[in-house]
């Protein structure tokens, strides 16, 4: 799943199981928007994002997450942030999203602008349907991502700058 151009690499991570499909659905909605310069992919494991990441273009990622979320249904982070290890502690082959991003950084593959959209899910059971609310949340996240992109709030940011994650109920 790839659009033309190479202005931004977007990766939706997920699986076909329950709410875990959130990242794939965000990627699919963005693909439908046909945003110029976007290179959109889906991955089953975070490690796959290293197939496409390049230091010279921003990397944005969407993935389902779980844990203590309070009233939030989705949240945005900028990498690096310690919060991620709580939210995305596990992963296939033990390659969690934070672990893969750390690996990418260690290998000099990460761009300065790495953003993550986490969508909290409840049921990740094998072959289960997505939750009733997921569709609405996906649309919200997609709108926010497009807003950020179109608003020009993009481009290289210092990896040292770690703004607090904006929570959304």
């Amino acid at each position: 799943m790839t659009t033309d151009g190479a202005g931004l690499c977007f990766v939706g991570i997920g699986s076909p199981h329950g709410d875990d499909r959130a990242g794939w659905q965000v990627a699919a909605r963005l693909q439908e928007r046909n945003l110029a310069g976007w290179d959109v992919h889906v991955a089953a494991s975070p490690i796959d994002l290293l197939d496409w990441v390049r230091p010279d273009r921003p990397l944005w990622v969407a993935d389902a997450c779980r844990g203590d979320r309070g009233a939030r249904v989705w949240q945005e982070w900028r990498w690096p942030t310690e919060e991620l290890s709580v939210t995305w502690g596990g992963g296939t082959h033990d390659f969690s999203l934070p672990g893969v991003l750390t690996l990418g950084q260690r290998l000099g593959r990460l761009p300065a602008d790495v953003r993550l959209w986490g969508i909290w899910g409840g049921d990740f059971g094998a072959a289960r349907a997505a939750g009733d609310q997921l569709g609405r949340v996906i649309e919200e996240v997609v709108e926010e991502i497009v807003r950020v992109w179109c608003g020009g709030d993009v481009g290289p940011t210092s990896p040292e700058v770690v703004p607090p994650g904006a929570g959304h109920a």
Partner: peptide
């Protein structure tokens, strides 16, 4: 020894 992995 115990750990639960996410998907597989």
């Amino acid at each position: 020894v115990e750990i639960l992995s996410r998907v597989e």
